[in-house]
């Protein structure tokens, strides 16, 4: 038989655990999910490269660009294609985010034919860097952990070149802000 004091202790413990659980859930287990409506698909940590990945990809003029040239600042890679409607939908949001967070380098990586990409961007310009990833081997989005092989796929790279976050699917409302914020 537990006495009254023990009952109180258990209730206090239970409420503390509830608060702790809620806090864990909100801040640690689901860092990027301010609105919890849509499931954020983050790649499992094991699929993220643990060492810095460097890539050389051509830009829109065909000049090779090395990813590590932006080492020292955070880099957001956004893999996309002109045939991918959800990718196109979030591109203006990425442009706005680049203006708001100049300390972060946003780099679009088009998994699409260069000609189609150039034509599309002529009609719908973006305010961030653009590289072409389609001819690269191995597949750059897979190198960054896109195991499903679908788009859009985004990767946040830290100042040391290591992958901080990755996500398959468009950003939820407020999620990009959460990624790029201080």
């Amino acid at each position: 038989m537990i006495d009254k004091r023990a009952t109180v202790v258990i209730l206090v413990l239970a409420s503390a655990a509830a608060c702790g659980g809620w806090w864990l859930q909100r801040h640690l287990l689901a860092p990027a999910q301010t609105p919890r409506s849509a499931p954020a698909i983050e790649a499992a940590p094991s699929s993220r490269p643990s060492i810095p990945v460097d890539l050389v990809l051509p830009d829109l003029d065909g000049r090779p660009q090395r990813l590590s040239q932006w080492r020292g600042q955070r880099v957001l890679l956004n893999f996309w294609a002109t045939w991918c409607a959800p990718c196109r939908k979030e591109m203006p949001e990425l442009s706005a985010a680049q203006k708001k967070h100049p300390q972060v380098r946003i780099v679009g990586v088009a998994m699409d034919q260069p000609q189609a990409v150039r034509e599309y961007l002529k009609q719908t310009p973006v305010d961030y860097s653009m590289l072409i990833g389609i001819d690269a081997s191995p597949d750059p989005s897979q190198q960054f952990g896109d195991n499903v092989g679908a788009l859009p796929y985004s990767v946040l790279i830290g100042v040391d070149g290591r992958v901080l976050r990755s996500k398959l699917g468009p950003f939820d409302t407020g999620e990009l802000e959460h990624w790029l914020g201080p």
């Binding site: 499931p39 954020a40 698909i41 294609a81 991918c84 409607a85 959800p86 990718c87 679908a150 699917g169």
Partner: peptide
Amino acid sequence: QGCHEIDPKICYP
């Protein structure tokens, strides 16, 4: 080629 049509909306190459 196709897509997933509910959130998260994604398309396949």
